Simulated assay, not measured.
Amino acid sequence: MTALRRTRGHDGGVRRGLGLGTRGPEWAVDAYTVVMAGLLIASGALADRFGRRRVFRCGPAVFGVASVACAVAPSLGFLVAARASRAAAPARKPA
């Protein structure tokens, strides 16, 4: 329910700004969720191989750049790609 409330709050602004219907913002939300879930195991393996601190330090940089890309997204495709790359950062957080 919390996820529904969070997406509904920002949904109107995104839809109006990009001229989307009701289904467009769902792609942006789903892209984040699917990519983060898919990378959790892989980022754990990277942390074991290269060290947790090194992998973790990449997270905030990736998240910051991807957040700026989300903010300036001119189209739905760009927004979905930026959200997917933004999801790669929290997946790198240490256990």
Rank of each mutant, 00 (worst) to 15 (best):
Arg15Ala: 10
Ile41Gly: 14
Ala81Met: 11
Met36His: 08
Phe63Met: 14
Ala81Phe: 09
Arg54His: 08
Ala91Thr: 01
Leu39Met: 15
Ala88Asn: 02
Val29Lys: 03
Gly38Ser: 13
Ala82Asn: 12
Lys93Gln: 14
Ala88Thr: 07
Arg92Glu: 04
Arg52Phe: 05
Ser43Thr: 12
Pro74Met: 10
Arg52Gln: 13
Met36Tyr: 08
Val34Cys: 06
Phe50Ile: 02
Arg8Val: 10
Arg86Ala: 15
Gly21Arg: 02
Tyr32Val: 03
Phe78Asp: 00
Thr7Ala: 09
Gly77Phe: 01
Lys93Cys: 14
Ala71Ile: 06
Met1Lys: 07
Thr7Asp: 00
Arg92Ser: 03
Ser43Lys: 00
Pro94Tyr: 00
Ser67Phe: 03
Ala42Leu: 15
Asp30Ile: 04
Gly77Met: 06
Ala84Arg: 02
Arg6Trp: 07
Asp48Pro: 02
Gly64Val: 09
Met1Ala: 14
Ala91Asn: 03
Ala69Leu: 15
Arg8Pro: 00
Ala66Trp: 04
Ala61Tyr: 08
Gly21Tyr: 03
Pro74His: 08
Ala81Val: 14
Thr33Asp: 00
Val72Ile: 15
His10Glu: 11
Leu76Tyr: 02
Pro94His: 07
Thr7Ser: 12
Cys58Tyr: 10
Tyr32Gly: 10
Ala87Phe: 03
Pro74Thr: 07
Tyr32Asp: 11
Pro90Tyr: 01
Ala95Met: 07
Arg53Lys: 14
Thr22Ile: 03
Val29Leu: 13
Arg23Lys: 04
Ala45Ile: 10
Ala71Arg: 07
Pro94Lys: 05
Ala91Arg: 01
Gly59Asp: 10
Ala31Val: 06
Arg57Ile: 12
Val62Arg: 04
Ala84Pro: 07
Arg49Cys: 06
Thr2Ile: 11
Phe78Glu: 11
Pro94Met: 08
Leu20Val: 02
Arg86Gln: 15
Leu39Cys: 15
Val72Pro: 10
Ala84Met: 08
Trp27Thr: 05
Arg86Tyr: 12
Val80Gln: 06
Val72Phe: 14
Cys58Asp: 04
Leu39Pro: 09
Thr7Pro: 00
Ala89Val: 03
Val72Gly: 13
Ala87Met: 03
Val80Met: 09
Thr33Met: 12
Lys93Tyr: 13
Ile41Thr: 15
Ala31Thr: 06
Ala3Glu: 09
Leu20Asn: 05
Ala91Gly: 04
Arg16His: 11
Gly24Thr: 05
Leu20Ile: 02
Pro60Arg: 11
Arg57Gln: 14
Val62Asp: 09
Ala84Cys: 09
Arg92Tyr: 02
Pro25Met: 01
Ala82Met: 13
Val35His: 01
Ala88Arg: 01
Cys58His: 09
Asp11Phe: 02
Ala73Gln: 06
Ala61Arg: 08
Leu79Tyr: 04
Ala69His: 07
Ala42Glu: 07
Val80Ala: 11
Ala89His: 02
Thr7Lys: 00
Asp11Pro: 00
Gly38Lys: 04
Leu18Cys: 05
Gly19Cys: 07
Gly19Tyr: 01
Arg54Glu: 14
Gly24His: 02
Arg6Ser: 12
Arg86Ile: 06
Ser85Glu: 00
Cys70Ile: 06
Arg16Lys: 09
Pro90Arg: 03
Pro74Val: 07
Gly21Thr: 01
Val68Gln: 08
Ala28Gly: 02
Thr2Phe: 04
Tyr32Met: 11
Arg8Leu: 14
Ala95Gly: 10
Val35Lys: 01
Leu20Gln: 04
Ala69Phe: 05
Gly9His: 12
Asp48Asn: 04
Gly59Ser: 15
Leu79Pro: 06
